[in-house]
């Protein structure tokens, strides 16, 4: 795997802990507030990743169209 390749195999240590943190972040929010939180989270994570090539693959993966660039 090269560093320009989106990781699609399990890569989070303590996946259950992460998921619980994610749900906790949304607890008590309205749907609109939750949507906004998710949007901010996407942008924060995208900035951390930084690489356009990876982000393009991620957009395709999230659209459930692997192998295609949606951007």
């Amino acid at each position: 795997m090269t560093e320009d390749q989106l990781i699609l195999t399990p890569n989070i240590n303590g996946a259950d802990d992460f998921y619980a943190d994610l749900l906790t972040a949304h607890e008590g929010l309205s749907k609109a507030e939750s949507d906004a939180l998710n949007a901010r989270l996407v942008l924060v994570l995208a900035n951390h990743i930084g690489k356009r090539a990876i982000l393009k693959q991620a957009l395709a993966a999230a659209a459930l169209k692997p192998g295609e660039d949606t951007a």
Binding site: A15, D16, Y19, L29, K31, N38
Partner: peptide
């Protein structure tokens, strides 16, 4: 909650295509 369900369904949809989401299915 509604968002909890949205996230859960997203994990399940992704799990069909990508191995990474499977450890999140609980």
């Amino acid at each position: 909650s509604e968002m909890s369900r949205v996230l859960r369904d997203a994990v399940l949809d992704l799990s069909e295509h990508y191995e990474f989401a499977r450890p999140l299915v609980n």
